[in-house]
């Protein structure tokens, strides 16, 4: 049942990305281009998504199990550290270069666009590099600071 809801959620998410214009990198770059002819559309995408999200996560916060009886696994990490900021900045530079973030990348791949294939392969390589660096670090015997990671 959980698998079915994950599939449905991915599908609806993909529909939202397509309808909103997020899968058109030229439009995304139009939003990020404050110095040119600015297209404010994507602010409304965020606004619409957060309007629904505020209600949903408000309900989620008061529950310990989901409607399917599964444990609620909301992120517990609280600390605002260098990792969070540098990671966000790095992601933002990549986003600004191509106008593609992870969700739309997968939709472009699903469409079979060669650019989608190239981007997703590179993105997976970046994620794999992170895993390798993390694994190497976790072998270091002294850990002064254990950064929390949220599943987002």
């Amino acid at each position: 049942m959980n698998i079915l809801f994950a599939l449905l959620s991915g599908l609806v998410f993909g529909f939202g990305l397509i309808v909103s214009g997020m899968t058109d990198p030229a439009k995304v770059l139009g939003f990020l281009d404050l110095g040119g002819a600015w297209d404010p559309s994507l602010a409304l995408v965020m606004g619409g998504a957060i309007a629904v999200g505020l209600v949903a996560f408000g309900i989620a916060k008061r529950r310990t199990v989901s409607f399917l009886g599964l444990p609620m696994q909301m992120p517990a990490a609280r600390q605002i550290d260098r990792r969070l900021v540098l990671g966000g900045l790095t992601f933002g530079v990549g986003w600004g270069l191509a106008g593609i973030c992870p969700g739309p990348a997968l939709v472009l791949l699903g469409r079979g666009l060669p650019q989608g294939v190239i981007f997703v392969v590179a993105m997976l390589a970046g994620m794999a590099l992170f895993e390798i660096l993390e694994r190497r670090k976790s072998k270091t015997p002294i850990v002064f600071h254990q950064p929390g990671r949220s599943p987002s």
């Binding site: 990671g87 966000g88 900045l89 790095t90 992601f91 933002g92 530079v93 990549g94 986003w95 270069l97 191509a98 593609i100 973030c101 992870p102 990348a105 190239i118 981007f119 997703v120 392969v121 590179a122 993105m123 997976l124 390589a125 970046g126 994620m127 794999a128 590099l129 992170f130």
Partner: peptide
């Protein structure tokens, strides 16, 4: 861009 998005996220 893909590499930066992968590692940054």
């Amino acid at each position: 861009a893909g590499l930066l998005v992968g590692i940054g996220t």
